[in-house]
Simulated scan of single mutants.
Amino acid sequence: MPRSVEGGWEIGGFAFAENPRFTCPRWALALVETWARLRSARGGGMHGMGPQVLPRGGGYLDQPALAMEAFEMFDRWLEEGRPGGREA
Rank of each mutant, 00 (worst) to 15 (best):
V53R: 00
Y60R: 06
W77L: 14
G59N: 02
T34P: 05
N19W: 07
A17I: 10
R3G: 13
A36T: 11
E33L: 09
P83G: 13
P64Y: 02
A67S: 07
V32M: 11
R26H: 04
F14L: 13
R76A: 13
P20L: 06
A28R: 02
A28L: 05
G45A: 12
T23C: 09
Y60P: 00
E6A: 15
V5C: 02
G81C: 12
R37G: 12
W35I: 03
E18K: 14
S4L: 00
L66S: 03
W77E: 10
C24N: 12
S4K: 14
R76T: 04
V5H: 00
R56Y: 07
G45K: 13
G43R: 12
G12W: 08
V32K: 05
G57F: 05
M73D: 10
R26M: 11
P83N: 13
M46V: 11
G85N: 05
L61F: 10
L61D: 12
G85R: 04
G58S: 00
M46A: 15
G12Y: 06
Q63A: 04
P83M: 11
A15G: 12
A17H: 09
I11Y: 08
G48C: 01
P51S: 13
E87K: 14
M1F: 03
D62E: 09
A15K: 13
A88I: 08
A15D: 11
A15E: 13
E10N: 10
G81I: 04
F74H: 05
I11T: 03
E80D: 10
A67Y: 00
A36H: 12
F16D: 13
G59I: 01
R82V: 07
A70R: 03
L38V: 06
G59M: 02
A28Q: 09
G44D: 13
M46T: 12
E72D: 09
P51M: 12
E79A: 03
W27S: 11
V5G: 06
A28Y: 03
E87S: 15
R82G: 08
F14D: 09
R76N: 03
M68T: 04
R26T: 12
G81E: 00
E79C: 03
H47T: 14
A30L: 01
V5Q: 10
D62W: 07
A67M: 05
F74G: 08
T23D: 07
G58C: 02
G59W: 00
A41F: 09
W9K: 03
E72V: 02
E10D: 11
L78M: 14
E79L: 05
M49H: 14
E87Y: 05
P25C: 12
E69N: 08
E72Q: 06
M1V: 00
E80F: 06
E33D: 15
W35D: 02
H47C: 13
E6L: 09
